[in-house]
Amino acid sequence: MTIRTFSILFLCLLLAGCASSGTWGWYVIDPTTKQGYNNIRFLLNGFGATILLSIIAAVLSMCIGLIVALPGMSHNRWLRMPSRIYIEFIRAIPLLPMLFWVFYGLPVVLKSMGINANIDAFWGAIITLAISDSAFTAEIYRSGIQSINKGQTEAAKTIGLNYSQTMRYVILPQAIKRILPPLANQFIYIVKMSAFASVIGMQELTRRANELVVTEYRPLEIYTLLILEYLVLVLIISFGVRWLERKMGADESK
């Protein structure tokens, strides 16, 4: 269904462009001309950075999220509190200010601690996206793990499994099916938010579109293509997740 929606949308835009050549100037990204071909190559080359950025940030976010979520479910309030504070604090910071702080501010902080680290745009964006998103993944883990019946933990305890064995062999394999869909949502969110990396000079999809707009003065066509680029990325992820869910579902009903 999504394929159909997508193709209809794409066709509409294309037809609109062809029908009224006064408003649209597709020549700017027409691959049959040399200039258009170079432009479109320039834009599509941003895919690599956006994808790499998103994947590394998402993996980091999932790891940090789990590390934050587990003590957050402890009976011990001194373990629970740091986790709570982290989640509330990080969740309250908008992405863009955090990005500025990490990119411009963090090196200064590190320097004052005697660490001479230059944070480039790529890692600045990854750190920001991962930390910002981890507050949300932590909450996803918590709700997923808490949705597993308490009897499972008790049964694991009565056969002598310790905490980490219980998590690894009993709770997480069951929780993952419930966690996966919201986690995929979060991944899509990261892909879209990676566009902010353009403001600190990261050469990803949005940055390249901006740069081309400045030289070509064709914002409508270029930003339309930019939107479609993100659309394609997100749809691919959705399909991937759908496939994964079906596969896991099939395993369960076997």
Binding site: G151, Q152, E154, A155, T158, I159, G160, L161, V170, P173
Partner: peptide
Amino acid sequence: MVFQQFNLFPHLSVLQNLTLGPTKV
């Protein structure tokens, strides 16, 4: 311990339910 609600591990086969403790513990 045997519970009223069984509390078997639903994602594991019967055999895996039985071998989990002996192998890991």
